[in-house]
Computed example of a mutant assay.
Amino acid sequence: MQPIFAVGDIHGQIDELHKVLDQIDADDAAGSTVVFCGDLVDRGPDSRAVIDTLMQGQADGKPWVVLIGNHDRYLLRYLEDAAFQDPQTSRPLYYTDPPIGGDKTLRSYGVDTQPSRWPEDVQADAREAVPQAHRDWLAALPRIHETDDQIFVHAGLRPGIALGDQVEDDLLWIREPFLSDRTDWGRLVVHGHTALDRPQLYSNRLNLDGGAGYGRPLVPALLFGDETFVLEGRGRSRL
């Protein structure tokens, strides 16, 4: 039984990411696998630095697993189609609309996103500015990660559907009926996507989206068998 760290939605908050990595490095279980549950980009000020940091960590051989989130996929689809609107959103939204926060991601790459500019021109600049290495890395990120004790995914799982039959839109976007369901998946489902004030443990799942995309702290978790801790301040707190 190996300890494993997990980190929720980062949303371009590079300072919070560095803080979390320092907390993990200071923990007794440092060196264990760290799973990042997606939504690396959008809303925060420096999505480019977040991607650079995670890519470099993996290149340096750190045991980091990074999942793709719905915002990460939205960036990729925007770069192919400036008018793309993901039908999974609650209402029609373009990638650069404030609720999505893609404009902040593009600015982190040096793209001028002033509303007075033609959307096609903004997208053309974005295609030049976002390195192909970043695009390839994002596109190759896994949608799910399994261990003996946990199932890691960005948004959740659709109840009544076998794990191997889950579809990508649900893995990246689902809220209900997953959030209110109490299905025992045989392992703890660790996810983000639905922002809370802080991580919350339920009978069958752990929601790690503490709202970093809205300016709240990024709080990592440490999972060890059936024990769950968060790292805050100077040490661990049991959930």
Rank of each mutant, 00 (worst) to 15 (best):
M1C: 06
D9S: 07
I10F: 07
L17Q: 10
H18W: 02
D28Y: 07
A30G: 03
F36H: 13
D39S: 02
L40C: 10
D42Y: 10
D42M: 00
R43T: 08
M55N: 02
A59G: 01
A59I: 02
G61W: 11
W64A: 04
W64V: 04
I68F: 02
G69Q: 04
Y74I: 00
L76T: 01
Y78C: 00
D81M: 02
F84K: 00
Q85P: 03
T89W: 15
Y94W: 11
I100Q: 09
G110R: 00
D112W: 04
S116N: 05
P119L: 09
H134A: 01
R135P: 12
R135Q: 13
W137E: 01
H145K: 03
H145F: 15
T147E: 12
D149F: 01
D149V: 00
Q150S: 13
F152G: 08
A155F: 13
L157A: 05
L157W: 09
G160K: 07
G164N: 15
L171V: 00
L172M: 03
R175N: 09
L188M: 14
V189Y: 04
V190E: 14
H193W: 15
L196A: 08
D197Y: 10
R198E: 15
R205V: 05
V230F: 13
E232Y: 08
L239P: 13
